[in-house]
Design a protein around this nucleic acid. Structure first.
Lengths: 340, 340
DNA sequence: AGCGCTCAGTAAATCGTTTTAATAAAAAGG
DNA sequence: CCTTTTTATTAAAACGATTTACTGAGCGCT
């Protein structure tokens, strides 16, 4: 407990007094917006040092109208996102975005999936927002638009006119289907979630189109996203009991892939010998499975960086293209599909 | 593009004018700090509705001196934390803390491990901070203390006088050792990281004390935390080649546990038949291993909640106990140690 | 000398709230 | 009926920075 008991905050005025200049000059010295004499600047810096001055960010924000803060949010309901899987996806992006943001002197505030996201937004003043894989009629997205908060979606939003970083779901689907074919699979069902997101639409469309074009059977299993792992396991088990046969499985959601693996193991099937399994999100789950799952490298940290920088542009009123291309996804072939 | 091109922000003054009252009254109506006539309040609420008034948080913060923002940070260097493992730990806490914070109208800003965390803190004005498993001479912690920012550590800080939520590492170590003994193991090395954190100190102390008291051999393998998984794998492999024999392994860090599992499988050992493996952090890794790893349920979301609420108290200058007990850790026995 | 121009610095206005001190009106008390 | 107290409201002063408009001083150039 050294130092004064009550240390009144030291302000720009205190510094100015000590350096025998006006507050305005101190401000200029700090921001560099106007030139100040080298000698004067010297005095100011010394005063700052001696007094231990730290600028009050709030006051600065108030004057400049910027909060130097962006939010990252996912609207997924707690039930869906709370599992380590989806949360992992969001958090992986959040961590990368936070780093990029901090490099630009911007703080990233985390809005995890909560029941009433709008009330949260009401209490926050942010310069912009990133929103991850928005759903149709996403309440959070709607609130942001109504408030005219600059917003960038990661993954296509339902109305394609909103600016977003386009994750190339179709390309991913093609990569995975090509790979399954390369590995000798011809009969592979598609297992996916039933929420109305771009990723689901694209995977379904590509899957159906190619099955038709290439004369292969198409079989889509749609599942609720609550408790995805167990849902996938039981669903697949049931289908197998009913005689469904296949030599591969395309299951984009990693949590579902884990469930699928469990069902397959339970049925005594050999992977990849009998069945090749491929998934999309290359999270911990895919890497940790035995055998490790073939997946797509989404390059999420790069995606997050791009999105954050685009958002910064948008906040500074610089025009940006409405659709920003994400880095090209790459296939990560692993033992769950490689026969040799 | 409906609506006015440039919609000047509507302020409390606009509302006041419209409701034919003074700005102060509007403020009182909003905050409820002073009583305002029911009829007047009615008029004000209507004006707010009609104008679509949204309070300017920054101005409010400036006047009240609160930013309604807390930071969560981990000081781990990028190399250590960037892996999904440690990041998972931080993020799991962050997500839970964000939820608790939002319930209290406080935003949580994320400071991921970056090279120069102090510069980041300089640009932020927060009411308080949570800091996860601080290290000795933690630069971030030092900055926070110098700035007199109310701070709560999650996991004991090096100087025990700082307020913190005490994760009961000793209890965890005892739980795991008891369990290994129950499962018939008597020779189990301890594999841990070499950074100077409370968790490492506690595990080492308990391990040594019990080995001595119970007449068992003690063998500690200390590893750098960079690239923990590979480090653990090669280290264990080497030790086995040199003739180290054991019937169990105590490896708190989950990334290292994964490496250990790989080394054991590589040596053709049966788990849990030949070797029982237990770890501490029950993350995705532990659950996804085959066989799944026995671990400790740290109840991190509860820990985060407790820490966030304590921090809120501290910010409001309410006295809090310097050491806050975390919920009692519970053993999650899984197939990596269960013989039957 | 007079004119224009840059340079450094200052005083004052401003951002949008909350809070304090003052006030008018109404109610209560004698 | 004249005080006191309470109640509801308001005008004005903060909060701590940035920015605008203004002021001299110094300098170069006809």
């Amino acid at each position: 407990m050294s130092g004064p008991i009550t240390s009144r905050k030291v302000t720009v005025t205190d510094v100015a007094r000590r350096a025998k200049v006006s507050p305005g000059t101190v401000s200029n010295a700090l921001s560099g917006k106007r030139h100040v004499n080298a000698e004067t600047r010297q005095r100011i810096e010394q005063a700052i040092e001696e007094l231990g001055y730290v600028p009050n960010l709030t006051a600065r924000q108030m004057r400049t109208g910027r909060s130097n803060t962006i939010a990252i949010a996912s609207s997924m309901s707690v039930g869906v996102a709370a599992g380590p899987s989806k949360l992992g996806f969001l958090m992986e992006i959040a961590a990368a975005a936070a780093i990029t943001a901090l490099e630009r002197n911007t703080a990233l505030i985390l809005i995890p999936p909560i029941d009433n996201p709008q009330s949260a937004l009401d209490q926050l003043s942010v310069d912009g927002a990133l929103i991850v894989e928005p759903e149709r009629d996403d309440p959070m997205l709607e609130t942001l638009i109504r408030r005219r908060v600059p917003t960038i979606c990661i993954g296509a939003p339902p109305e394609m006119t909103l600016p977003h970083v386009a994750l190339e779901y179709s390309a991913m689907a093609n990569l995975l289907i090509d790979h399954l074919l390369d590995c000798g699979s011809r009969h592979f069902p598609l297992i996916l979630g039933q929420s109305d997101r771009q990723t689901n639409r694209d995977f379904r469309a590509v899957y159906l189109a190619r099955a038709k074009a290439e004369g292969r059977p198409a079989h889509i299993i749609e599942l609720p996203e609550q408790n995805a792992e167990a849902a996938a396991e039981t669903a697949l088990r049931q289908q197998m009991e009913q005689g469904l046969s296949f030599d591969g499985i395309l299951v984009p959601v990693d949590a579902m892939a884990t469930g699928v693996m469990r069902a397959l193991r339970g049925a005594g099937l050999n992977i990849p010998g009998d069945v090749r399994v491929v998934t999309r999100y290359d999270g911990l789950r895919a890497r940790q499975e035995t055998p490790a799952l073939t997946a797509i490298d989404l390059q999420l940290d790069e995606v997050a960086r791009i999105a954050t920088e685009a958002l910064a542009q948008m906040i500074e009123q610089v025009a940006i293209p409405p659709i920003i291309k994400a880095p090209t996804p790459r296939l990560l072939a692993r033992r769950s599909s490689l026969l040799s």
